[in-house]
Amino acid sequence: MSVNVAMMLAKQSKKAPRAIAEDIQGAMQSDALIEKIDIAGPGFLNFTFAPTFWQATVGVVQEAGEAYGSSDMGKGTKVQVEYVSANPTGPLHIGHGRGTALGDSLTRILEKAGYDLSRPNITSTTPVVRC
Rank of each mutant, 00 (worst) to 15 (best):
V3H: 02
V5I: 14
A10V: 01
A10Q: 02
K11S: 15
Q12I: 12
K14S: 13
A19D: 14
A19T: 15
A21E: 00
A21T: 07
A21R: 05
E22I: 03
Q25C: 04
G26E: 14
A27C: 12
S30C: 11
I34T: 15
D38F: 12
A40E: 13
P42D: 06
F44G: 04
L45I: 14
A50L: 01
P51G: 02
T52L: 08
Q55S: 08
A56L: 07
T57G: 01
T57I: 01
E63W: 05
E66H: 08
A67Y: 00
Y68E: 03
D72T: 15
M73R: 10
G74L: 12
G76H: 00
T77L: 09
V79N: 02
V81N: 06
E82Q: 11
Y83T: 06
Y83C: 04
V84S: 05
S85G: 15
N87C: 14
G90C: 03
P91M: 12
H93M: 01
I94Y: 10
I94W: 09
H96T: 06
H96G: 08
G97M: 04
R98L: 03
R98E: 04
T100P: 02
T100W: 03
R108E: 05
E111T: 14
G114Y: 04
D116Y: 06
L117M: 15
I122H: 04
T126Y: 12
V128Y: 10
V129D: 09
R130P: 03
